[in-house]
Amino acid sequence: EFILQPIHNLLMGDTKEQRILNHVLQHAEPGNAQSVLEAIDTYCEQKEWAMNVGDKKGKIVDAVIQEHQPSVLLELGAYCGYSAVRMARLLSPGARLITIEINPDCAAITQRMVDFAGV
């Protein structure tokens, strides 16, 4: 995967993360976080594997957030924003999600994903 990915990106003209974002923009409903998550899950199941938590493990994350109702949540590494959208949609009003992503391209994609999801 890591050796072939740059070749695939070159042939496709963009990165996997950008392709995931484009899929979301084309297939998800703006302002609907659940729709965004479903679009990412569908893309990763049908098109390309991606390094995200996914729906199965995501339900565990959901349960922890719902049980503890944090007022501040810190995410280290956002990748394409799946977990940020997943967690933010469950936060109480006034709660904050702080996401740190070292890769500026992934940070920009995450910001667009979060904005599109409306969270």
Results as ranks from 00 to 15, higher is better:
M113R: 06
D105A: 00
Q26L: 07
I102F: 05
F116S: 02
L25R: 03
V24E: 01
F116C: 00
M12K: 05
S35G: 05
I7F: 12
N22D: 02
T99N: 09
I98N: 08
N103S: 01
C106S: 03
D105G: 08
F2C: 14
I20T: 06
R112G: 05
E29K: 15
E101K: 00
V24M: 00
I20F: 11
P30A: 12
F116L: 08
H27Y: 01
L21R: 11
I109N: 01
Q111L: 04
P30R: 15
L97P: 03
D115N: 05
N9T: 12
I102T: 02
E17Q: 06
M12R: 10
V114L: 03
E1K: 15
Q5L: 04
T15S: 05
M12T: 12
I98F: 05
H8L: 14
I98L: 09
L11F: 08
I7S: 14
A108T: 00
P30S: 01
P6H: 03
E101Q: 08
A28T: 04
N9H: 13
I7M: 13
Q111E: 04
N32S: 07
G31W: 12
A117G: 02
Q34K: 12
I3V: 12
L11R: 14
H23L: 00
F116I: 03
A117T: 04
L97V: 01
I3S: 15
V114G: 09
H27Q: 01
I102L: 04
N22T: 05
L25Q: 11
I98V: 04
H27D: 02
V114A: 04
I102N: 07
D115A: 02
T110A: 06
D14V: 11
N103I: 01
N103T: 03
Q5P: 11
S35C: 07
T110I: 04
L11H: 13
N32K: 13
I109F: 05
I102S: 10
N9Y: 10
D14N: 06
R112Q: 08
I100M: 08
R19P: 10
A108P: 03
P30L: 08
L21M: 11
I102V: 02
G13R: 08
F2S: 12
A108D: 01
A28G: 05
H27L: 02
E29V: 11
T15A: 09
N9K: 15
C106F: 07
L4M: 15
M113I: 02
L21Q: 11
N32H: 14
Q5H: 07
P104H: 06
L11P: 09
N32D: 08
D14G: 14
T15P: 07
P6A: 06
I7N: 14
S35N: 11
K16T: 12
P6R: 11
H23Q: 01
I109T: 03
E29Q: 09
V119E: 13
T110N: 03
D115H: 07
A33V: 10
V119L: 09
A33T: 08
A28V: 07
A117P: 04
I7L: 14
I109L: 01
L25V: 07
P6L: 06
A117D: 13
I3L: 10
M12V: 09
L97M: 03
A28S: 03
L4R: 06
Q5R: 12
E1D: 11
P30T: 11
H8Y: 13
S35I: 09
P104L: 04
A108G: 00
Q18K: 12
E101G: 04
L25M: 04
E1G: 12
L25P: 13
N9D: 10
L21V: 14
I98M: 05
Q26R: 02
S35T: 07
G118C: 08
N22I: 00
V24G: 00
A107S: 09
A33E: 15
P6T: 09
K16R: 12
E29D: 06
L11I: 13
Q26P: 09
T15N: 11
L4V: 13
Q18L: 08
Q18E: 15
S35R: 11
L4P: 08
